[in-house]
Amino acid sequence: MIADIGVVLWKEAKEIMRYGGNRGWLSLLILIAVYGIFIPWQMGRAWIEEPLALLFWAWVPLFLVSTVIADSFAGERERHTLETLLATRLSDQAILLGKVGAGVAYGWTLTVVSMAAGVITVNLAFGQGRFLFYPLGAAAAMLGTSLLAAGLMASAGVLVSLRAATVRQAAQSLSLAVMLLLFVPIFGVQALPPEWQARLMTAVSHLNTARAFLLAMVTLALLNLALLTAAKARFRRARLILD
């Protein structure tokens, strides 16, 4: 089973890298340059010292995974490769987990590489001889949250892609979901009455960061599990072929 998941991962990675000829590699380098060099260089020491960076690294994998995961099943269906894949000895779980795993590996690896590049950039530009690094607890929280965020988007993406008629339809649904995740909290808070906003800010400022991240990670893990279970229930070879 693990070996079979690995085979699907290998195939997905090859396809991502060969997208548009060899443009796949170029896209990766641009993303790393933006998230790992340009933004940290603009932000300076705050990039490492402010807790807001934690939220950024939780959002990045959502965006990264959403750019590739729409293709997982809808793309195979559109390019007429799905039925041949389904006619092989691979189990349903291996195909499904391989696709989810490929999305997670793509999003999380890029995020971690960008984080590392960000640390290097800030140290080179603003270190002044001192090694600047995230507090260890924050670094662990960032790694954990970004992994779970990548998993969340990969599971949600696979579920959407299983149902979508085309890659475009799947991509639109996922972009909408990412936008909602980003803008609903921002505009939602602004829409609250001023006294509620003040109360919320007070609650946030007194929040135990470690406990909040733990709670967020447990919630993300549960959401991951729920979405994976839904995707597994949706994965029926006959339905995939006839859709």
């Binding site: 396809e15 041949t84 006619a87």
Partner: peptide
């Protein structure tokens, strides 16, 4: 199996 479509991954 070779089914209705060749089922080849054209990017590969």
């Amino acid at each position: 199996a070779l089914l209705e479509h060749s089922g080849l991954y054209e990017r590969l």
